[in-house]
């Protein structure tokens, strides 16, 4: 079973990389960009065969390591 974890900075946390991308897009003539926030995607290949179990495992992984919940939010997608 595969899972994807999307880790993003919480609203209100400064994202200088997102800002730099925003400016670069503006420089390339993309005028309609109000804001850019950068995050990361982590892909996991799991031994678990039960979707609920996989999700609870990944949830624990996010809290322990994959995300720093002081500054980041995470969202899990399980691909059955």
């Amino acid at each position: 079973m595969k899972a994807k974890v999307f880790v993003t900075l919480k609203p209100g946390v400064l994202d200088p990389q997102g800002k730099a991308i925003e400016h670069a897009l503006g420089g390339l003539g993309f005028d309609g960009v109000n804001e850019v926030r950068q995050g990361k995607v982590i892909e996991l290949d799991l031994a678990a065969e039960d979707e609920a179990k996989a999700e609870s495992e990944v949830e624990a992984m996010c809290r322990k390591l994959l995300a720093n919940t002081v500054i980041e939010n995470y969202r899990i997608e399980i691909e059955a």
Binding site: A20, N68, V70, I71
Partner: peptide, 17 residues
Amino acid sequence: LTETGLLPGALLRNAGL
């Protein structure tokens, strides 16, 4: 120390990149 939770907060990328 912030990652272990011994100290509060986190260290982000420098504002000036």
